[in-house]
Amino acid sequence: MACSRIRSRHSISPPTQHSISKTRPYDPRHKTIGSVRGTRQSLFCSVLLEMSLSTSDAVSEALSLDTFPKFIHLYDHAKSLIGIHGRYTASSDPIIFERAQNKAPTNKKPSREDLACSFAAAQDAIHAVQPAGPAKDDLELFKLLWEATIDAIAKVLEGGNLDLEVCAWGIIGLAAGYMKPEATSHADKSSFSAYRSRLRTASGSLDSLKSPRNGRAPGVSPEQRAYILTKARREIHVCSNLLLQQYRRDGWTHIRWYHGIAVAERWIENLTVAEVVPGEEEVHSARDESV
C-alpha cells in the first residue's frame, strides 16, 4: 500500500558514508542503501576505471544481486556507458538504437539531460528488432535496468518505511513522466490530472506547517494543525494509491524511464534500513567465527 506505515522525516537515519578502496575492485554486493547518497561520484569514477567489466558481464553480475543492489549496479553501469559513448539516439523507420555518432569515447559524467534522452531513446527502441552489435547489448542492459527499477519501486512501497513527503513527491515525479495513451478518454485524463493536482496540494500543505524553530506554522493553533495534517495525509494516501493503480494497470509502460529511475534512486536513498548482500569475504569471515 502506497505511503503506508510512513515515518516522520526526523526519524530517518542519516546515510552512512562509505568509501571505495583504491586497491579493491568495485563490488556492488558490498553496497548498502545508506551508502548511495554520499558516494555517487566515487561510484561513477570506480565503474569508469573498471570498464574491463563488459556489458554482458555487468548483466551476468546483476542476476546474482538482490533488488536494491541490482538496481544500483545496473544504473551505475548504464551511466558509465552514457558517459563514455555519449548520448544514445533512436533513428526512425526502422527504429535503430545507436551510440553517439562520430564521438570519441570519454570518461565524462553524463548530465541529467544525457540520461533522460538516452533512456527515452532506449524506451522508444525496446520493441524494435535491433542489429547485432554493442548498441544492442547496451539496450538489453537498459531494459534490465528498467525491470529492476519497477522491482525496486514495488519493494520500497511494500516496505512502507518512506518519509511521507518523499513518498508523495516521488509519485508526483512518476506522474510528471506519465505519457497518457492516445486512446485515453477525456474523463480519464481529467481524473488523472485532478489526482495529481490534489496530491501536489496536499504535499505542499505539509510544508506550510513547518517553521525553522519548532516545526509549526505561525498563527496555526494545535487543533487547526492536527486537522490540516490529518486531511493532507488522507489526501496523500488516497491520491497516491489511485495514481499507482493507474501505473500498474498500464504495466508501467507509460512512465518515462528516466522519471521512474530517478524516483527509485531517491526512494532507496531515503530508506531507514540499509540492505546488504554479503560478499564472499563476509561469508568466509562469518564461517571462520563460527568454527
Rank of each mutant, 00 (worst) to 15 (best):
M51D: 15
R40I: 05
E265F: 08
N102V: 01
L53R: 11
D288Q: 10
G83A: 08
S35A: 15
R213F: 14
E98H: 12
T201D: 14
G215D: 11
P134N: 02
A58L: 08
S111N: 07
V283E: 09
W267E: 12
Q224T: 04
S190G: 04
D250Y: 01
R40M: 10
R87E: 15
H85Q: 10
A264C: 06
V291H: 03
G177Y: 01
I255G: 00
F142S: 01
Q224C: 06
R216E: 04
P222E: 12
T32L: 11
Q130M: 06
W257Y: 05
T230P: 00
L145R: 03
N241Q: 14
N102K: 14
P15R: 07
H18G: 03
W257P: 07
L144S: 12
G173I: 08
L145H: 05
S208T: 13
T149Y: 12
R225Y: 00
I72K: 10
A168K: 10
G170A: 05
Q17Y: 03
A120G: 03
L242S: 06
L53N: 06
T67H: 00
E182I: 09
W252C: 00
H18W: 09
G160K: 10
N214H: 05
K31C: 08
S42C: 02
L174D: 03
S64D: 12
S35H: 01
L49H: 14
A232E: 01
P218K: 13
A128D: 15
R7K: 08
A286L: 11
S193K: 13
R87G: 05
R200L: 09
D188E: 13
W169V: 08
H254K: 01
D114R: 03
K155G: 01
